[in-house]
C-alpha cells in the first residue's frame, strides 16, 4: 500500500479536532453550529459513498439509518444516562461515545435487515425499497409515543463538540478509505463493476453488499447520534427522504466512489444552503437611491437552484464535479 503509515494522517486529524475543540469557546456559536453540521455531513456522505459509490448499490434510505442512530443514542442520553447518573462529569466522556456507538450498531442492524432482503434488487428497484424502508422508519418514529411521536424528542443533552464531530468524520473517512485500499476491499469495486464477473472470480457479492450496507448504516447511525446531541432535539420529519436525497447528491457531486471528492462535496453542500440563507437575509443598497434591494428571493430560489443543479449535473457531468476522468490510483 502506498502510505505505510496511513494511520498517521488519522492521528493528525484527531489531534487537530481535539485542538479545535479546546478553543471552540471563543468561536461564534452560530458558526460553530454550521461547522459541526459540516462534520456530520462528511460522516453521512462518506458512509453512503461506500454503499452507493464504491459498491454500486443505490440506497435512498440513508436518512432512515441516521434516524435510527439518532433516536437510539438520544434515548440513551435522555432516559438511561440520568437514571444511572452517567450523564454528567467525567463519565459523560465515556457514556457519550458509547451511546454514539450504540446508535451506530442499532442502525447497522437496521441496515443489515434492509440490505439482506433487498440485495437481489438492482438500481432503481433497490432505490425505491430503501426509500420505502426509510419512510417506514420515519412513520414508526412518528407513531411511537415513547420517543416523542410526531412532536419529536426534546431535551437531548448537547454533548456534541468539535472533537466528536471531526474525530468521527476523520475516522469514517479513514475507515472507508482503508477498507477499500486492500485486495479484499477492491472486491467492493469489482462488485460495483460487474456482479456476474465478480461471482465468477469467487467473490460473494451478496456478502460484499451486505457488508457495505452494514458499515455504511453504522456510520449513518453515528452521524445521527452526533446530530441529536448537536441540535438537542429530534423531529421525525427531519429524516424524510429529502434528507436521504441530500446525502445522495453529495455522493454524486463528489463523483461516486471518490474519497476526497465526496468529502469536499459534503462540505460544499452543507455550507451552500447556510450561505444562501445568510445572503437571503441581506439586502444590497440601491445605487439609484430609493429602497435597498432585498435579496429575500434567494431564500425562495435556493431549493429551485439546488434541483436545477442536480439535473444539470446529470446532463452535463454525471460522473460528478470532482471526477478526474482518470483511473483510480492503483492500490499498490
Amino acid at each position: 500500500m502506498a502510505i505505510p503509515k496511513a494511520q498517521r494522517w488519522l492521528l493528525v486529524a484527531l489531534v487537530l479536532s481535539g485542538a479545535a475543540s479546546a478553543v471552540s469557546g471563543s468561536i461564534d456559536p452560530y458558526f460553530l453550529d454550521v461547522v459541526m453540521g459540516v462534520g456530520v455531513g462528511v460522516v453521512l456522505a462518506s458512509s453512503l459513498n461506500l454503499i452507493n459509490g464504491f459498491t454500486g448499490q443505490f440506497s435512498l434510505g440513508h436518512a432512515g439509518f441516521m434516524a435510527v442512530g439518532a433516536y437510539t443514542s438520544a434515548m440513551l442520553s435522555t432516559v438511561v444516562a440520568p437514571r444511572m447518573g452517567w450523564g454528567a462529569g467525567a463519565l459523560q466522556w465515556v457514556f457519550f461515545p458509547a451511546s454514539l456507538v450504540a446508535g451506530g450498531l442499532v442502525a447497522a442492524l437496521a441496515g443489515l435487515a434492509v440490505g439482506a432482503p433487498s440485495l437481489r434488487l438492482k438500481g432503481d428497484y433497490l432505490a425505491i425499497v430503501t426509500l420505502g424502508f426509510g419512510e417506514i422508519i420515519r412513520v414508526v418514529l412518528q407513531n411511537v409515543d415513547a420517543v416523542g411521536g410526531a412532536r419529536g424528542l426534546t431535551g437531548v443533552p448537547t454533548h456534541t463538540n468539535l472533537l466528536w464531530t471531526f474525530g468521527t468524520a476523520s475516522l469514517t473517512v479513514y475507515t472507508v478509505w482503508a477498507l477499500l485500499e486492500s485486495t479484499r476491499g477492491r472486491g467492493f469495486l469489482a462488485v460495483a463493476d460487474d456482479e456476474v464477473a465478480a461471482e465468477a472470480m469467487g467473490l460473494d457479492t451478496t456478502r460484499y453488499k451486505i457488508t457495505a450496507f452494514g458499515i455504511g448504516s453504522f456510520f449513518a447511525g453515528v452521524a445521527g447520534g452526533l446530530y441529536a446531541h448537536l441540535k438537542g432535539y429530534l423531529n421525525p420529519g427531519g429524516f424524510s427522504f429529502e434528507k436521504s436525497i441530500e446525502i445522495v447528491v453529495m455522493v454524486i457531486l463528489g463523483g461516486m466512489g471518490r474519497h476526497a471528492g465526496v468529502v469536499f462535496a459534503a462540505i460544499l453542500l452543507t455550507l451552500l444552503p447556510e450561505g444562501l440563507r445568510e445572503l437571503g437575509s441581506r439586502s444590497i443598497p440601491n445605487p439609484f437611491g430609493g429602497p435597498a434591494w432585498s435579496l429575500d428571493w434567494i431564500k425562495d430560489a435556493r431549493m429551485i437552484l439546488y434541483s436545477l443543479l442536480l439535473i444539470l449535473l446529470m446532463l452535463l457531468r454525471p460522473e460528478g464535479l470532482f471526477h478526474r476522468r482518470q483511473p483510480r490510483r492503483p492500490s499498490s
Binding site: 485500499e181 486492500s182 476491499g185 477492491r186 469489482a190 463493476d193 460487474d194 469467487g202 457488508t211 483510480r328
Partner: peptide, 29 residues
Amino acid sequence: LFPSLSVAENVRVAFHRHLRHRAWHSILR
C-alpha cells in the same frame, strides 16, 4: 473485466478465495 480496476487489481481481486486477511485487518493495517 472490472473496468474501474487496474490490470493488476483485476488479478488480485481474483485471489479472494485464498486471502488470509479479513476486512478489519485492512483498517488496522
